[in-house]
Amino acid sequence: MHPIGKILIIAGILIVIAGIVVYFAGDKLSWLGRLPGDIRIEKENVKFYFPITTMILASVVLSAIIAIIKKFL
C-alpha cells in the first residue's frame, strides 16, 4: 500500500475514535472551548468567538502525541 494511503486510513480511524469520545463524553468536555483566554464577543447582531487558549492546548497535546509516536516508531 502506498504511504499516503496508510496515512489516510490512520487519520480516518483517529477521527472516528475522536468522534466516539466526543459523543459519549460530551458532557464531561463542556469546559473545552470555554477556557480563560478564549475570546468571545457577543453584541446584538454579531457573535464572534476565537478559542485561542483551546487551540494552544490542542496544539500542545497533539505535538506531544506525535513526539511520542515518532519516538516509538
Rank of each mutant, 00 (worst) to 15 (best):
K47R: 05
K28H: 11
N45H: 07
L14A: 12
M55D: 10
K6M: 12
I39C: 03
K6H: 12
I10A: 11
P51I: 01
G37C: 01
A25F: 14
R40D: 13
V46M: 12
I65T: 13
K43V: 08
A67V: 09
A18L: 12
M1L: 14
M55K: 13
R40E: 15
S59G: 15
I66D: 05
F72H: 14
K70V: 08
M55N: 13
A58M: 05
I68Q: 13
G33F: 02
I9A: 12
I41R: 10
L73T: 15
V61R: 01
L35T: 01
D38C: 03
I9E: 07
R34S: 07
I39M: 04
L32W: 02
S30H: 06
H2P: 15
Y49H: 07
S30G: 05
I20T: 06
I17T: 06
L62R: 13
G5S: 11
V60Q: 09
I13L: 08
I52V: 15
V21G: 02
I66L: 15
I20G: 02
I17A: 03
A64N: 11
E42D: 07
W31H: 01
K70E: 14
F50E: 08
K47L: 02
G5D: 09
N45P: 02
V60K: 06
V46C: 03
D38A: 01
R34Q: 08
P51E: 03
L8W: 09
